[in-house]
């Protein structure tokens, strides 16, 4: 499996990464090197092997239903590049 430029461009779009045209070609080469490397896994017979879900084998801990957090809009918006009152602001979304 080898990626071409168009595929890499579409992956970049999916990942919301602006990759300038001149960086695309070297990126294609790098990604193909990495994919070529990881494709060694094809050699491994994994028939009947369940994918690893957790290294600890623990079950998911569950917390009690109580309001213990929130109530600090200033803390969650303190680092926002653009905020208006206690809202985050982004370029207008047209639906």
């Amino acid at each position: 499996m080898s990626l071409d430029k168009a595929t890499v461009a579409s992956i970049a779009a999916l990942a919301r990464l602006r990759v300038p045209e001149e960086r695309l070609e070297p990126m294609v080469a790098d990604l193909n090197t990495i994919l070529g490397f990881v494709e060694q896994l094809d050699e491994v017979d994994t028939t009947g092997v369940e994918p690893l879900a957790s290294v600890t084998g623990h079950a998911l801990p569950q917390r009690d239903d109580a309001v213990t957090d929130g109530g600090y809009p200033e803390r969650v918006t303190a680092n926002a590049p653009d905020r208006v009152n206690d809202f985050y602001a982004v370029p207008k979304v047209v639906e």
């Binding site: 094809d42 491994v44 994994t46 092997v49 690893l52």
Partner: peptide
């Protein structure tokens, strides 16, 4: 890729 890798990971463990 991903599921395969998690299977191999189980073998490594």
């Amino acid at each position: 890729y991903y599921r395969k890798a998690q299977r191999v990971r189980a073998l490594i463990r």
